[in-house]
Measured scan of single mutants.
Amino acid sequence: MTVLPKDIPGDSLKVTVGTANGKPGDTVTVPVTFADVAKMKNVGTCNFYLGYDASLLEVVSVDAGPIVKNAAVNFSSSASNGTISFLFLDNTITDELITADGVFANIKFKLKSVTAKTTTPVTFKDGGAFGDGTMSKIASVTKTNGSVTIDP
């Protein structure tokens, strides 16, 4: 049996954390987006972790974005102690894959008090994996961190 590389060099799934701005007490939304989904033969499963400074940001909610089908079954998240974990699994293993680019999740943060303008990162942590529509590992994932700026 011969195994051929399935990824064209330079191609990767792009996962990007967005940015937001606000004043202390505001609730802002930071999107997590996927790009080049079709090039990577869709997404059938993924789990990953984001870190944030809990002294500056309070997670209000984490909701599935419009590219997630049947989110009540296929999407899960949790947030505590400065870490947000995400889990997606197409429970049907074929019919509810992520097949389009767009917003995977929206994180709502309540901004805490600061004395001066502060930009705090929302960054990928170690761990996690992504699988394509056949549940094979997506070897190349380009992750881009985001941030939230609090301006009193």
Rank of each mutant, 00 (worst) to 15 (best):
G18I: 12
D63I: 13
D26P: 10
Y49E: 02
T149C: 15
G65A: 09
S77I: 14
V103K: 03
T29N: 14
T149D: 15
I98M: 08
A54P: 10
A35R: 13
N47Q: 01
A129I: 01
D126N: 15
P31I: 09
D132W: 03
M40Q: 06
F88D: 01
K39S: 11
T134M: 05
V103G: 05
V3H: 11
T144P: 06
T33K: 13
F124E: 02
F34G: 08
I67G: 08
T33N: 10
G18P: 10
V122I: 06
T27Q: 10
N47W: 00
A72P: 13
L87H: 04
A64L: 00
T144S: 07
I93S: 02
F75I: 02
L50W: 12
G10T: 09
A20Q: 14
A79D: 15
G128I: 00
F88S: 03
K39L: 13
G44H: 02
V37D: 11
S85Y: 05
K112L: 03
T33P: 12
D26K: 09
T45W: 00
T99L: 05
T115R: 06
T123G: 07
D132C: 04
F88I: 04
A64P: 10
T45D: 00
K112F: 01
F75Q: 07
F104M: 02
D63S: 14
T94Q: 01
K6S: 13
I8Y: 10
N106P: 01
N42A: 14
N47I: 02
G22A: 10
A105Q: 00
F109A: 01
P31T: 12
N21Y: 11
V32F: 08
D101F: 04
P24S: 11
I84C: 14
A79N: 15
F88H: 00
N47K: 03
K14I: 08
F130A: 03
V103Y: 04
F75Y: 05
T149R: 14
A129K: 01
G127A: 03
I150C: 15
S136V: 01
A64N: 11
G133T: 02
A38C: 14
A72E: 11
T118K: 10
F124P: 01
T19R: 13
K23M: 11
M40A: 08
T99S: 06
K110M: 08
D90A: 03
G128D: 02
T33V: 07
G102K: 01
S12E: 13
T149M: 15
Y52R: 08
T118D: 06
S113H: 07
T16R: 12
I93E: 02
K39G: 13
K108F: 05
A116S: 07
A72H: 14
V141Y: 01
T115A: 07
T45A: 06
T118P: 08
G133V: 03
K14A: 13
F34Q: 07
M40S: 10
N106L: 06
K125C: 02
P31H: 11
K108N: 03
K137S: 00
K6C: 14
V68Q: 11
L13H: 10
F88L: 05
A54R: 13
F88K: 00
G51W: 08
V30G: 08
F124L: 04
I107Q: 00
G10F: 10
N47L: 01
D151G: 15
P121V: 05
D132I: 01
I150V: 14
Y49L: 00
F86H: 02
T94G: 03
S61L: 11
K41Y: 10
A116N: 06
S113M: 05
D101N: 09
Y52P: 03
V30H: 12
T123E: 03
D11A: 10
L57E: 10
T99E: 11
F48E: 04
T118I: 05
N81G: 15
V62H: 08
A35H: 13
T120F: 02
I84Q: 05
T115K: 07
A72F: 13
F109G: 00
T33S: 10
I67R: 13
G44S: 03
D63R: 13
L89H: 02
V60R: 10
L4P: 12
L57H: 08
C46W: 05
T19D: 13
D95P: 02
S147G: 06
V62E: 13
K6T: 10
